[in-house]
């Protein structure tokens, strides 16, 4: 139960403003989810430098064991989140993190995305992260009112469980326990009891099996029962889908400069040129995908 925001910038001159705009959007939806919040920023050259892989972590205080294991590891502490990047493949970095930082929870990985989460009021999170100073070509964010799982940083969205992939959810799945069991039987490992994580793991599982993003979300619609508005992002795409009943709010605004999605209009109102945007509500069970 929550608020969702997402921004996919088509116009490069807006890239320096990504964090500022995302923070403003998120701030508008704090009342929808005062418990905790999270954001994912795609393409910030400081957080995710080109030619390197980045892993986003919770519950890490000291990354020295990792630095001793891999050359040229850089660490960026950001509130409850810690980012580490290194000039190796994502898999190599993840393996090294698992081996050297046993208490850490991985909340994001890839070559182009930084995922940051925390408990507390969304405004405090965006401030502590310095979100307004971040840059990039795409970002998603979420404010959370926890329904049935605990208020923890790992319970916050986005759920990023595949390379450069993120999922944020507003609503409540009705059969997630069964799908979790099925995915576990297929070898998928979970970090939280959150229903939304099941959605994210499902999408990543389908993408890993060769489905494209649209196909993966169609399969999700077939398999998942319940109420959902989902915003899913990947290394090059931005997608929105809602359940058949489509009770949970969603608005999409599109201009030649950007595509944005939010639970409520007030989050879109902060965007430059919104007055000229084409604004519409996504249709039930229709998958909308924008690719870079």
């Amino acid at each position: 139960m929550c608020g969702i925001v997402g921004l996919h910038l088509r116009e490069p001159t807006l890239h320096p403003r990504l964090g500022e705009l995302l923070a403003a959007m998120l701030g508008q939806l704090a009342e929808r989810g005062p418990d905790s919040a999270g954001v994912a920023v795609y393409g910030d050259p400081v957080l995710t430098p080109p030619g390197r892989s980045t892993v986003s972590l919770l519950h890490v205080s000291d990354t020295t064991p990792l630095s001793e294991h891999l050359p040229d590891v850089k660490t960026i502490p950001l509130g409850q989140t810690t980012l580490v990047h290194a000039p190796v493949t994502t898999d190599t970095l993840l393996t090294a993190v698992t081996a050297t930082l046993p208490g850490a929870t991985v909340i994001g990985s890839g070559t182009g995305v930084a995922v940051m989460k925390g408990t507390g009021h969304p405004a405090d999170l965006t401030r502590s992260l310095g979100l307004a100073g971040m840059t990039g070509w795409q970002g998603v964010g979420h404010t959370r009112m926890a329904t049935e799982s605990a208020v923890t940083p790992e319970g916050a969205h986005p759920f990023s469980v595949g390379p450069d992939q993120c999922l944020v959810h507003n609503g409540s799945f009705a059969n997630h326990a069964t799908i979790r069991r099925e995915l576990r039987a297929d070898g998928v490992v979970f970090d939280s009891e959150n229903d939304s994580e099941v959605g994210a793991r499902f999408v990543t599982h389908q993408l890993a099996r060769g489905a494209d993003l649209e196909k993966a979300l169609r399969l999700l619609c077939e398999r998942f029962d319940g109420f959902y508005t989902l915003l899913v992002s990947t290394a090059d795409s931005f997608a929105v889908v809602r359940d058949a009943i489509a009770c949970k709010p969603a608005l999409i605004a599109e201009t030649p400069q950007w595509v944005a999605m939010a639970s409520e209009y007030r989050a879109l109102a902060v965007l430059p040129g919104v007055d000229a945007a084409r604004i519409f509500e996504p249709e039930p069970e229709e998958v909308y995908v924008w690719t870079r």
Binding site: M1, C2, G3, E31, R32, G33, M145, T147, N170, G171, S172, F227, C247, K248, P249, S263
Partner: peptide, 14 residues
């Protein structure tokens, strides 16, 4: 069985 113009606690807030 559901209210016609809100669903869930976030919309109930409004």
């Amino acid at each position: 069985c559901r209210h016609p113009d809100w669903t869930g606690p976030d919309d109930l807030t409004i």
